[in-house]
Design a protein around this nucleic acid. Structure first.
Length: 578
RNA sequence: GCCGUCUUAGCUCAGUUGGCAGAGCGCGUGACUUGUAAUCUCGAGGUCCCCGGUUCGAUUCCGGGAGACGGCUCCA
């Protein structure tokens, strides 16, 4: 009977542990679970190891696998377990946390490990050609930075060689699409260590993309009943004391700057500012719901080791909005946000979208009336069900101030990215004493929901770059058309074609250098420009262009008027295909 | 922040057992004027990440620092 891949991975981690013990006697063992694409095992080694040591360990693992040793389960008492693992401090700690009577060991090839199981029957079920040691990394014991740092060995492992190869291929593809690499190749953005890491500089071409995206974003928000706000980048400490950020979020905020003897903080979030706008006037239930959006740039301290390309940065622009409404309106509002979010994602070409619902944290670490939590959760559930979305519930995973839904989209190579987050907030309305006058003349507290659809513009740009491999849909392309004359004699005609397209708003460049035509095509192709218009004698005579698409397709002798109509239609429709 | 690896031209990367620093691409120049993925010529371009130390001499060895990259949740 074939075991499931998780069991195989976990069994392989025991084999890794055995191999490491053989090669490095005296090793202390941490834990060795199966993970998404393989497994790892944490060790405290007698001496540091390098990536170059991995092949020797792999070889030893293959030897153990070939031996066909059986995995044998044995139950022991706590006392026996303590004796057996007397020289294994980490295992002893694990044993102490276990219930008497539930302690089991697994032994293979003379190597015994504390383990709940299950395991494969024999090491032969682990395919020697379906795993690969991947990397050595430091990892804190139990993920706690106050505890010892262990050496973690990561491996990829699958049920078959074909699965492993498919995974390696996906990783190779991911490397090609890496937003940092594409950002350089396509001249879209940069970061500068000397000017501050984790801060993104948008180049002209990145700017073209961003403006196209933001214009669309704003139009859609106005269409969908939002208003757009602009708020300051800094706020006095009063604001952050009132919001509670200085007590709960201080480590994510930068040090204050002193202005006229007051401390000002650069904003890590936009919400307190939107609340100030709300409080600038009184509100009736008749005004609600208010939907206020802002492309608000925030700055948050991220530990230096966690910065990553466009995906994790220190300054970013949230496509933020706050919805302020009455309890009666909340269900419709949530359904509406979700529908809007799905519409945006689908327009951008994401087909598979999954929801993750996070509920009230356990214990007393949360604020707000439990009845409100229940109403909120109910409205979130109804909304996902209405949209027929697949969803998972993360019990107790909500923030202390309210439950939330996150949406994850699947990209072109199967990876999931969280973009949208929709979060209730029972904390800020209270802290800022937000009110509206209800139909009964009573002052009441409104509901407030934070939401970001794309998450942040920077991170979304990174995700989208990787999803499309830089070949954006035409409407978002920094450069939509390259006009390439076949020779010097046709430069003027190329200029004329480009000018005509530019005049109707198509982002066009005429490639007029004295390079060969082939070199220009190659260049435009590498820049992922969707339309290359090749023009020579024939085209000039006929007022036509020859279209070369970035996928290599060709269409010759198209009249310029027809091409113009075609591309304008593709842009207007936000077509995903050129 | 912590563990590991890395840092050489605008980019991608060679190289120096410690003795004046290299290629390709890109950029500039001159020539050539081309029909669907790289025309040829010449040239400019470097604090070999930064600060100390060892040495007659350090890009290279040693120490410290910065940054980038892979990790630090997935529970025996």
């Amino acid at each position: 009977m074939a075991s499931n891949v998780e069991t195989i991975r976990h069994s392989a981690s025991h084999v890794l542990a055995e191999a490491v013990l053989k090669l490095y006697p005296g090793t202390k063992f941490g834990i060795g679970p199966a993970i998404e694409d393989g497994f790892y095992y944490d060790f405290q080694l007698p001496a540091p190891i390098q990536p170059e040591d991995l092949p020797a360990i792999e070889k030893e693992m293959r030897r153990i696998i070939a031996s066909g040793a059986e995995f044998v389960r044995k139950e022991v008492s706590k006392e026996e377990a303590r004796k057996l693992f007397a020289d294994q401090p980490f295992k002893l700690e694990l044993i102490e946390a276990l219930e008497e009577g539930s302690i089991s060991l697994y032994e293979q090839d003379g190597f015994v490990d504390l383990c709940r199981g299950p395991h494969v029957a024999t090491t032969r079920e682990i395919r020697p050609d379906a795993f690969k040691l991947r990397a050595v990394a430091g990892a804190y014991w139990r993920g706690d930075e106050k505890r010892p740092m262990l050496t973690r060995i990561y491996a990829y492992a699958f049920g078959s060689k074909a699965d492993l190869e498919a995974h390696l291929k996906m990783l190779e593809e991911a490397e090609k699409r890496d937003c940092r690499k594409l950002g350089k190749e396509l001249d879209l953005f940069s970061t500068h260590e000397e000017a501050g890491p984790g801060l993104v500089y948008w180049h002209p071409k990145g700017g073209r993309f961003r403006v196209a995206l933001e214009n669309w974003w704003r139009d859609e928000h106005y269409k969908n009943g939002y208003e757009v706000l602009f708020t300051p980048h800094i706020g006095k400490s009063w604001l952050w004391e009132t919001s509670g950020h200085l007590s709960f979020y201080k480590e994510g905020m930068y040090s204050p700057m002193e202005i006229d003897e007051d401390d000002y903080y650069i904003k890590p979030m936009n919400c307190p500012f939107h609340i100030m706008v709300y409080k600038s006037t009184g509100h009736s239930y008749r005004d609600l719901p208010l939907r206020w959006a802002e492309l608000g740039t925030v700055y948050r301290y991220e530990r230096s080791g966690t910065l990553h390309g466009l995906m994790r940065v220190r300054g970013f622009t949230q496509d933020d909005a706050h919805i302020i409404c009455t309890p009666e309106q909340i269900e419709d509002e949530i359904a509406e946000v979700l529908r809007f979010s799905l519409y945006m994602h689908r327009t951008l070409g994401f087909k598979e979208i999954k929801a993750y619902l996070a509920t009230k944290p356990k214990g007393d670490g949360s604020v707000g009336d439990p009845a409100h939590w229940a109403t909120a959760l109910e409205s979130l559930k109804k909304a996902v069900e209405k949209e027929g979305l697949a969803y998972e519930i993360d019990e107790g995973g909500g923030a202390f101030y309210g439950p939330k839904i996150d949406l994850k989209v699947k990209d072109a190579i199967g990876r999931e990215w969280q973009l949208t987050t929709i979060q209730f907030d029972f904390n800020l309305p209270e802290r800022f004493q937000m009110e509206y006058v209800d139909s009964d003349g009573q002052k009441k507290r409104p509901y407030m929901v934070h939401r970001a659809l794309l998450g942040s513009i920077e991170r979304f740009f990174g995700v989208y770059l990787e999803h499309t491999a830089g070949a954006f849909p035409v409407w978002l392309c920094p450069e939509q058309v390259a006009v390439i004359p076949v020779g010097e004699a046709f430069m003027d005609y190329a200029k004329k074609v480009a000018a005509e397209l530019k005049s109707v708003g198509v982002r066009t460049k005429a490639m007029l250098s004295d390079e060969r035509m082939n070199a220009k095509i190659r260049d435009a192709q590498n820049q992922k420009i969707p339309y290359m218009l090749v023009v020579g004698q024939k085209e000039m005579d006929e007022g036509a262009v020859s279209i070369r698409y970035r996928d290599g397709r060709q269409e010759n002798g198209v009249s310029l008027a027809d091409f113009k109509a075609k591309i304008l239609e593709k842009i207007a429709a936000k077509s995903l295909e050129a």
